[in-house]
Nucleic acid binder design. Structure first.
Lengths: 149, 149
DNA sequence: ACCTTATAGTTTGACATCGTACTATAGTCA
DNA sequence: TGACTATAGTACGATGTCAAACTATAAGGT
């Protein structure tokens, strides 16, 4: 009936918790974001601000570990909002170059300011020690999953 | 420029890792499932098998922490596959009663058997101690998020 | 040069999810 | 009994996501 070992059950529980947290925290964050930004869009803006330089959609897809199709869609929506611009890569006829616009930079600032309080509330849920305990294990799991897909 | 304290940044990183793991592990599981079952559908079948009794869509939505609309949609797809049946609740004209069918029970068995190996592989990623370390903190976070939404 | 393979990006169809709005039934209370 | 409020379920539109199929360009090998 239950074909899972105890260890497998623990792993199952772990992934279950992670799924629920992901869902709840995304919904929570998204409600705070301005300009109708989604979590995916906000993440992309943050990435482009922090790691300046030229990014192709393919590199972005790899960085976020989503498919190219998913990245195409998110980039199109951000472009429609005027927060990024895309141009052809003169050195590679297949590729595009993604650039953050000034409006995108401002939107990211506003989003960060709006999201801050939501994150601050979370301090009540987890102590700094809790967070430090969780992060290494989760990174291990994330890296393993990334390498074995 | 970066309006987040160090602690907030750590929390942000934590939620980021959780989001990526959730995405990768769901995609991984879904590739293994038979009958075109999705993770959401599989979770629902598991729930109905383990916790026998009568469940309304509303109770299921609360248990899975999704909206009623989401649950309506998933239940309709499972019903179309013949894995659950729904009937009106004679004691409450608003409510429905969800029941697992025999085909649903068999599909869940098959799905569990198919998912087992994928979970077993994960043992290579995390030791039992790692899992035991992660679960309490994640539960704390999940419960807090659930209570504050 | 040509053929094969790899990579970049888009499109499409299916699903889960949210939030909002809506209908119908229950329950409460004056 | 009648009005207000709460709950159950559904519908809709938007978004993210995947997988698969497709086009276009690049790179390698013979």
């Amino acid at each position: 009936m239950n074909a899972l070992s105890q260890r497998e059950q623990a792993l199952f529980l772990l992934l279950n918790e992670i799924g629920i947290i992901s869902q709840l925290s995304s919904a929570r964050l998204e409600r705070l974001l301005p300009h109708g930004l989604t979590v995916a869009q906000f993440g992309l803006l943050n990435h482009l601000v922090r790691l300046d330089g030229d990014w192709s959609p393919a590199r972005l897809a790899a960085a976020f570990q989503v498919t190219k199709g998913t990245m195409t869609s998110t980039l199109q929506r951000l472009e429609a909002k005027g927060f990024i611009s895309m141009r052809a890569n003169p050195a590679d006829g297949r590729a595009k170059i993604v650039t953050l616009t000034d409006a995108g930079r401002r939107a990211r600032e506003a989003a960060l300011a709006a999201a801050g309080p939501g994150l601050a509330d979370l301090k009540a849920a987890l102590s700094p020690a809790d967070v430090d305990t969780l992060i290494p294990g989760l990174q291990k799991l994330r890296i393993w999953l990334d390498m074995h897909r």
